[in-house]
Design a protein around this nucleic acid. Structure first.
Lengths: 217, 217
DNA sequence: TTGACAATAGAACGCATGTTCGACTACAAT
DNA sequence: ATTGTAGTCGAACATGCGTTCTATTGTCAA
């Protein structure tokens, strides 16, 4: 049977762990031993040290010895900032009713709103921007009203990539899978129940590649 | 005209900034003055202090005075870990060909793969899990083969919410918007070109609510 | 040339901070 | 009772670390 002395030390341990988590959230820097002592209501720094050693043994946190603020929470669900990118939200896209806006470098840097996504979803993180889809005109690209579309600015794509194509004759943009077939482009809807159609390559202009689509329910 | 003394101090400033960024990425803790000195090849701690004051004035970083490691990078594109959640990826969903798996708490904690998403996309972060859509059988929910579906475990939903519904008579799950109409449920496809259909509420079981759908191109 | 000032160096000051140590207490097994 | 061990406390020690001070040098404007 487990031995319990004075007050169950598990309680203090948990308080320490919780406080460190909270502190990092608030300050984006881990606390010092003495800050933990005060914040988690521990009676002495040696007790904090004691709990910390315990938590480290239980693999709940890592420590850099002798470094100030050298505690790192060890949480499998923890997100590391370097795994994420922040993409500027530059506007609304009404597919089938005009061109997709293609922002310049300045617009990308100064955007007010930003969308955070995992790096693993987009691989290459350069020249990304985000658009909000508007209207139901993009059903054939399986895109819904309000969806967030993450795009990469590009003027050419490989066969079979999903891209925003500006059709000069119609003066509108559309999202389709693009295949080059000689002097013409095959534009294939994402929806397999719909037929592809073809345009003369001279009247079609690649605006960007769709990297990711995010729908909030 | 700007005055340039010895070596352009802009260079040193930049080295300091870059080093801090890198250091935080590697250690998830900001560096000390002396670590910056060594890492960014600065000749003295007072020079580091000098640069730091400069960078702070230029609003490129914030400092907590007199606190050890009290530097925080000030980057609009910087992602803060607390804004993100990590969702366990628990399986594949083949809609229209069986039930959606509903994992228990253990499965959620021990999942190998995880999907990182912004908190703002899901609001409530409890009981979330992620599924990969398989096959083209979910077109009427505007969901594509390979899409990541973020779900929240729930047994009831509000009218108009998108949910996974298990149909006991067909022994399969489907993703639809759900409306309660007396003793029956109206299940409405996301695709506005498709008609809703109705089931007896006794033969339908809510499995979870769709919080978010992510498509990688 | 000279005065003003940014840029630079090195060292020292002093509080911040992790660590350690000795002593003391409560509880369980012997 | 004795002994061992986990839990606890307070204080002291040794660095860690931000800050500051003085002195020096290079550059530009007057």
């Amino acid at each position: 049977m487990a031995r319990l002395a004075h007050g169950s030390q598990n309680e203090g341990r948990q308080r320490v762990l919780d406080f460190i988590t909270m502190y990092i959230n608030d300050n984006s820097v881990p606390p010092t031993i003495r800050e933990i002592q005060a914040g988690a209501k521990i009676s002495s720094t040696s007790m904090v040290s004691y709990y910390l050693k315990d938590l480290e043994k239980a693999n709940m946190l890592d420590r850099y010895k002798r470094r100030s603020r050298g505690v790192v929470i060890n949480d499998p669900g923890r997100v590391v900032a370097r795994d994420m990118v922040s993409v500027p939200l530059v506007g609304v896209i009404t597919c089938g009713a005009g061109p997709v806006p293609t922002p310049d470098a300045d617009a990308l840097r100064s955007a007010d709103d930003r969308i955070q996504i995992a790096r693993s979803l987009v691989k290459d993180t350069d020249d990304l921007f985000a658009l909000i889809a508007s209207g139901d005109s993009m059903i054939d690209a399986l895109i819904h009203d309000g969806d967030i579309i993450i795009m990469k600015k590009e003027t050419d794509v490989k066969n079979g990539e999903l891209a925003a194509v500006f059709l000069t004759e119609k003066n509108e943009s559309t999202l389709k899978r693009v295949y080059k077939e000689g002097k013409r482009l095959k534009l294939k809807p994402e929806n397999p129940t719909l037929k592809p159609f073809y345009v003369d390559a001279r009247f079609a202009q690649i605006q960007g590649r769709v990297m990711c689509v995010i729908r909030r329910a």
